[in-house]
């Protein structure tokens, strides 16, 4: 199998990492955060919150891909999501 080239100085570059924290009970399932996440980290949960909405979750394969831009927090109309600094 032919290997691809790697970026040789990747270890020297610092990439901001974040972790979205969701207050599921506040979510009304509008999906703005999912729509606008530039890294497409978020998707709808399978289960419902107590109001009966699907809320945003991070699927296991997207774990660690959040770049802490914080746009989800900015667009959320219900203050139901924010990002913690992971660095």
């Amino acid at each position: 199998m032919i290997k691809k080239r790697m970026l040789l100085n990747l270890d020297k570059l610092k990439i901001p990492k974040g972790k979205p924290i969701v207050f599921a009970e506040r979510c009304k399932g509008c999906g703005l955060c999912i729509e606008y996440c530039p890294k497409q980290v978020l998707s709808f949960s399978d289960d419902y919150n107590e109001k009966g909405y699907h809320y945003p979750v991070i699927p296991p394969e997207k774990e660690g891909e959040c770049i802490r831009c914080g746009f989800c927090r900015q667009v959320c109309p219900d203050f139901a999501i924010y990002v913690e600094d992971e660095n």
């Binding site: 080239r5 970026l7 100085n9 990747l10 570059l13 610092k14 990439i15 901001p16 802490r68």
Partner: peptide, 20 residues
């Protein structure tokens, strides 16, 4: 650049290294 989350191959390094 330190704060930037986006990694791009650096043209100056002929794409062998990365930049933000």
């Amino acid at each position: 650049a330190e704060a930037c989350p986006v990694i791009v191959p650096n043209e100056f390094d002929q794409g062998l290294g990365a930049r933000k």
